[in-house]
Amino acid sequence: MLLIYCPNCLEHREEEEFSYGGEAHIARPLNPETLSDTQWADYLFFRKNPRGIHHEMWYHATGCRRYFNATRNTVTYEILETYQVGTQPQITGTDA
């Protein structure tokens, strides 16, 4: 069970209160009609799925009911930081 710090509620809550939202910082294409099939595929289906540092979205379903981002290590599962949507992470890199 992960203990996740919600940057809106400002406290640690149990994973069961949240749902996972997948990779963060994926920008919606601005000109969808000009995208090639490969670009669409990339946007829809291809994720980084790194072994190590991952920036991802979480939704605090039974709390503030808002999305936020987290930086998590996908090997140790340690959550290194959580931060607001629209801001950038402090911790980057790929180290496992």
Partner: peptide, 13 residues
Amino acid sequence: DSYNGYGQRGSFH
């Protein structure tokens, strides 16, 4: 489990 991971373990709930 809902999240991505490589740790060969998941969450208890």
